[in-house]
Nucleic acid binder design. Sequence first.
RNA 1: GGGCGCGUAGCUCAGCGGGAGAGCACUUCCUUGACAUGGAAGGGGUCACAGGUUCGAUCCCUGUCGCGCCCACCA
Length: 921
Amino acid sequence: MLDKTFNPGEVEGRIYAEWERSGAFRAGRRPDAKPFSIVIPPPNVTGRLHIGHALNNTLQDALARFERMRGKDVLWQPGMDHAGIATQLVVERQLAEKQQSRVGLGREKFLEEVWRWKNESGGAITQQLRRLGASADWSRERFTMDDGLSRAVVKVFVELYKQNLIYKDKRLVNWDPRLQTAVSDLEVENIEMKGHLWYLKYRIDGQMGRFITVATTRPETMLGDVAVAVHPDDERYKDLIGKFAILPLANRRIPIIADEYSDPEKGTGAVKITPGHDFNDFEVGKRHNLPVLNILNKDGTLNDTVPEAYRGLDRFVARKTIVGDLEAVELLDKVEPITHAVPHDEKTKTVVLEPMMTEQWYLNVQPLADKAIKAVEDGRTKFVPDNWTGVYFNWMRNIHPWCISRQLWWGHQIPVWYGPKKVVEQELRAYPFKEFVAQTEDEARKEAETYYGAKVRFVSQDENFDHALTSWSIEYKEKRESVVPLRRDPDVLDTWFSSALWAFSTLGWPDETPELKRFYPTSVLVTGFDIIFFWVARMMMMSLWFMPDVPFKTVFIHTRVLDEKGVKMSKTKGNVVDPLDLIDEYGADALRFTLALAAGQGRDMRIGPSRVEVNRNFATKLWNATRFCEINGCETVADFDPAKVTLTPNQWIVTETAATARELTTKLEALRFNEAASAAYHFIYDVFCDWYLEIAKPIFNGSDEKAKAETRATAAWARDTIFQLLHPLMPFITEELWARTAVMPRASMLIEGPWPKLDALPKFEDASRAMNWVIDLVKGVRSVRAEMNVPPSAKIALVLKDADAASKATLAANSDVILTLARLSSADVADVLPKGSAQFVLGEATVGLPLGDVIDFAKERARLEKELKKAEEEIDRIDAKLSNEQFVSRAPEDVLTEQREKRAEYAATATRLKEAVARLA
RNA sequence: GGGCGCGUAGCUCAGCGGGAGAGCACUUCCUUGACAUGGAAGGGGUCACAGGUUCGAUCCCUGUCGCGCCCACCA
């Protein structure tokens, strides 16, 4: 016997363990079936499940379960991302607690620490995904730093290098002075901040008392100025072009140049040019062959190119000092407060980034992007909803080289080794280096030894390479036996480089594995729009470059989750809803269903406890409906054929169940999760519980054993079908009930399917018509009872007048049901309605409820007249249409017919209502 | 500056060319043997605004206003 309520806490862990033990999640168990595959957007190894993950994985799981039930061979490929910066920071923070540091430990020891952390505390999120019910094939779990995936990364790097698509370049990057690494443009977040616009006066060389004023938000960068630019047509400055300004504090002469970059409308119309620390200025500098002056050290302090007074000062300290010093010599014209966007690191949003000249590795993605664009143009990959296609194209068509190197330790180290340029006496210089790009250290050694004709020695990351080179060159000069030092590039690759390969690297590439053959391209990618550029676009590019086909046929972009007030969740705002709390409180099914229901296309969703509670109630409803079936002996009949039921209510529920099965199938196929969920919700609540089970009650309480047996079997069938249909969205409760309602042990767990066979589901149209009539009749009676204040306990009589044969037959055949649901003492057919009847019109018939003294004539008249007015308004509206010649001549025939039929119906209703009113008198 | 999306019941949202829908909230009634985490009956909307297309517009087009987001720029 089932308890009164479902207790998810007791059930979920057990059921999940059973699924896992049974091997149901495993891919490849159905070699003859069609494959269906999804790769998970790999969560960070440092990650904890947030509501966005919960949504993302609920949708993936729903699809995996749906297709698995339909008999496909499903691979849901799980795994995690090594998350370079995030992970390195976590471990560094832990070290700091032990008074240790990354640098103090050295690279090798530090990496050991990271791995230890990963093995001990990393990947908590995979356990949390299990709590959500994720049916991923955990036996195939991958990590971006696995041996296999690392091999893929190196191979891709080497090949792209050989294709001259990967190269080193010295240019401006966004630099993070705290982590001391480059970050890609995508990782920059511009934050609006209050700041100042300082107006600096530069003296004109040779023109006493004349100044040119420039405005800047970063006055410290003036020490890196190499020119002042004015617009060639700007009359104010025309005569200064070609002259020189004296850069204050540094006392350098810098040229005043003409360049269209300067906008006479902005600032003073004259702009300082700092190619070393500004992206636009860099371009201007290139056009005018100006030098690039880098005034910053990697930690953001000022370097030795600036006057001694400022050396070693942090950039923000230097800003204050410089402004003060300029003011002191009266070269600060004015200061204006402004708000402007300041580049910050996207991760913490606390560090202000600096454009800085550094040498980095770049990937020329243009040729890759061309293929990725083509694939979407050709429809080989489709975005759903498709408005994201434009976003994708826009980015792809304006793509820039991708800065792929990061000055971190945790990640895929770049497979490039450096040795001295040449081993000839005249060129014992260490620079420039000779590069060896190889897939393994051995390969690099071989190449280097061939090149040098000598043995090589690998210099570790913690050793001083310059020192090694120096001593080597001394040894070489002195013709002593020596080995050539070789050191690997210390940088690692951007984390997204390895995730870009995820769709094929997780399947075993570069090996030609059976999984790669079977499950690539994957069926659908489910992800949020925030990583279209970071991840989706790059997977498209890398996959198409190294594989013969697209990585996925469909990209489903789901909405973003906001809190209940519609505010983006963030730790600092303290409005984060923890999905695990929701699971604890309401159960995973309730959370999943809530997320699915909110997953409409193209809009943010708001999630909070009150929403989840509603669906916990829904789970309770399903549970109790099942309990009702159990109490009434509804047992699954093994060879039950829904096409053979004979009772009207049973034929009706079979038809309704079939319609729901078809609808859910269609909606899930179309990735319309919210529509699938609401169809299930509506069917279970409104159709199955509120009507069918209520209809079944009098049958169960009656004496017709044959009817009882058929209804029990039908109810059990409908209930079992509900379990099947709901399983993708509410896997735990359905699996539990599937087992608990089994008479004989079930052939398999629900997770294995089957999905209802749509072709075998019948449609009983007569039964549907009849039951809709019964429902309308009962609703009409209930409505009158409520409005006339008839006590719920009072049984009243019903008289049906002017009914046609079908209605009479339906009434007769379902009288028990009608008497019970409408709480009637009798239901008869008559030619005349008794005096004192409340009345309502039902189709061609009029229903009378003789209330005797209870009836309030004034109220009844008002009620009927209100109905009549409604009907007459409808008639007028339709008449207005039908009398419009344009409408009659241009509207399609079926619309016309429909309108005419409607008019007739309303007219008939109106006539009967008028008669009813007349009868009152 | 370019782009995308959104303004529908008090709230959250679905619908998107021919009768305005759901959940929550609200009102009234019901502690009837599945479920009060429940049931029944109700009230509530010139579908942001203005034009246009159409026989017909909440739905399509244009514009306006308001809100949100993305990209670029920011002396």
